[in-house]
């Protein structure tokens, strides 16, 4: 697991992109306080997933509004899946495993 910064770098209910080992990973902070990490690039047409709106289950890509499951990375609208990464919070620090 790699430290990527403070959980407070991500506003509640939003996502931010982090570059980790040359990969772009979108980390989301859900309104229940938990975090999720997905590959940052929308498999549909390359949209920035971190700019999407989320709830406790899904992220909706800002470009064409297709949705992906935040936990599994599976598409909820028949698209290709995105990779999901293990992520956890330890003492307000975010750790992602790539």
């Amino acid at each position: 697991m790699k430290p990527i910064g403070s959980v407070h770098d991500i506003p509640l209910g939003e996502g931010r992109t982090f570059a980790i080992d040359g990969r772009m990973i979108a980390v989301f902070r859900l309104r229940d306080g938990s975090v999720r990490a997905l590959s940052a690039v929308c498999p549909h047409k390359g949209g920035p997933l971190a700019d999407g709106q989320i709830d406790l289950k899904q992220v909706v890509c800002p470009l064409h509004l297709y949705a992906w499951d935040l936990s599994t990375g599976c598409s909820l609208s028949g698209q290709e899946p995105v990779t999901s990464f293990p992520v956890r919070i330890d003492d307000d620090q975010l750790f992602v495993e790539v």
């Binding site: 770098d9 931010r16 979108a26």
Partner: peptide, 15 residues
């Protein structure tokens, strides 16, 4: 908000 204007783009700009 923190990082309001931080890029969300992939390193290589697509498409």
């Amino acid at each position: 908000t923190p990082g309001q204007f931080r890029t969300s783009l992939p390193l290589t700009v697509l498409p």
